[in-house]
Amino acid sequence: MAGYIFTLDSIDSLKKIAETGVYSTKFKNIPEKSWRTPHEGTFVDYLSMKSEDNVYFFHKRKIYGIGKLINIHNQCIFLNFPDADKPGTTTFDVMKDKMLLNESKEDLNKRFVCTFKGEPFLFKKGVDMDEVLSSNPNAFKMLRALWKLSFIKIDETENKALFDCILKANESRMDGKENSYPFDRKVHERIKNKYTPEYSVTSKNIVKCAVKNNNIQHEMAIEAAIVDYISRNDSNNIYGKWDYVSHQVIASPFKPIDYMDKMDVFGYRYIKGYNTISKYLIIEIKKDAANIEVVDQAMKYVDWIEQEYSHDYSMIEAFIVASCIPDEVVKKRNESALRFYTKGRNPVETLRWKNLRLVEYQYNQKENHIIFKEIAPIE
């Protein structure tokens, strides 16, 4: 399972969030007509959340936990009020009775809501960031980038390392209730009773707000559509089913923050019935027509995944998504997107990886969603 680390401004916020079992990012400077890229990035992170994922909280260099996302009406993410995924402001008096979180007008800035509980407990004792990183240095990649971000998503390996570190630090506090925050189900019950499909989270309005003259203006909006598309496990999903999906994954975790190189979408799937990774996924997105340089960019990420994760090219599935894939890009893919590798000993088997797929997207204004179509399938 994955994990999420949320940044908080005070211990009082931690106490309230832990007791209510609800977290919502505060949106600042909400635009009137279209979302900005940071807002869209936050939406993508919410769209990728799944029940059973762990949650943690970061404040003043300490990480607190441990929580677990839980479903209400078969989902763990909700709009705080109908049309909360559309930009623009409204008034507290008008929306108060429709809001899931409605203690004050400040809650109007809380657009998305996720639900969780302590699992096993949300401990009051936090663990210093340096202690966490030194507990398992090889496991942590994304955690090193937790800098001026509202929250980040970490993969299974990193999540397990963080879970173990916090649990070991609180081993002597497992019995006493005074060492963890209590949980009051009142807000969860409110969500359960108020829920209608109007509170469900999809990518449709996020994409619609990014469209101008029938063209999508932001790559992040396309990421939202892809993550939503994959998460729904549609039978016509050309990307396949993936158990873990994240966006903006850091491909060079030890470079200075301003120079970090990021792939757009990263994921993996398990062998059915087992907690063993079968395949890794990368998707590189271009909102306009692809150029030949994107092939080398995608292959750089393929090589990085082979070196850092799979150590086996056959475990990698890669995609380039763009509004148009010109013939020159298809030719470049056919010539350059190729890797030879070996397996076994006595005899050694030489194998060929050629699994970079090309996908064109089109916005369907009538249906208000993105259509994906693979072109030039690999022979």
Rank of each mutant, 00 (worst) to 15 (best):
L143Y: 06
D164V: 01
A169L: 07
P82Q: 06
D130E: 13
K153P: 02
T91L: 13
C76W: 11
G65E: 11
A84C: 03
F81N: 05
H188T: 12
N71S: 14
L146V: 03
L143M: 11
K117L: 15
D107H: 14
F81M: 11
K177V: 12
G176C: 14
V127M: 13
L133E: 06
N109G: 13
A139K: 06
H73C: 03
K125H: 12
C165I: 00
W147M: 02
F163G: 01
K141E: 11
N179D: 15
G176D: 15
L69M: 09
L162E: 08
C165W: 02
P82K: 10
L108T: 09
V187G: 01
L162K: 04
L108F: 04
I154M: 10
N71K: 13
I66A: 01
S104K: 08
S134H: 03
I166G: 06
N159G: 12
L133C: 08
I72W: 08
N170S: 03
L122R: 00
G88R: 00
V132E: 07
T115A: 13
T89R: 10
V113T: 07
P87S: 00
K141G: 02
G88H: 02
P120K: 12
K168W: 03
T115D: 09
F112A: 03
R173D: 14
K124P: 08
T115L: 05
S104D: 15
Y181T: 08
G126H: 10
D130P: 00
N159A: 07
C76A: 04
L146S: 01
C165L: 06
Y181M: 12
C76F: 07
I70A: 08
I154D: 07
T89L: 10
D128G: 02
A139W: 05
I154N: 05
N74K: 12
I154H: 04
S135M: 08
I166E: 10
E189L: 13
K105A: 15
N80C: 13
S104Y: 14
L149H: 09
K148A: 12
A161M: 04
F183E: 10
T115K: 02
F123Q: 03
D155Y: 07
N74P: 00
F92N: 15
A161F: 02
A169F: 05
C114K: 00
M99P: 09
T157I: 13
C114G: 02
A145Y: 01
A145P: 01
G176R: 12
K153E: 13
D175Q: 11
D83V: 00
D97G: 12
P87T: 00
F92V: 11
C114N: 09
F116T: 05
K105T: 14
G88N: 02
N71R: 11
F121T: 09
E189T: 06
P87V: 00
W147D: 10
D184R: 14
T157G: 15
F163K: 14
G176V: 03
L133F: 06
D184L: 12
N74Y: 11
L146C: 04
K124R: 15
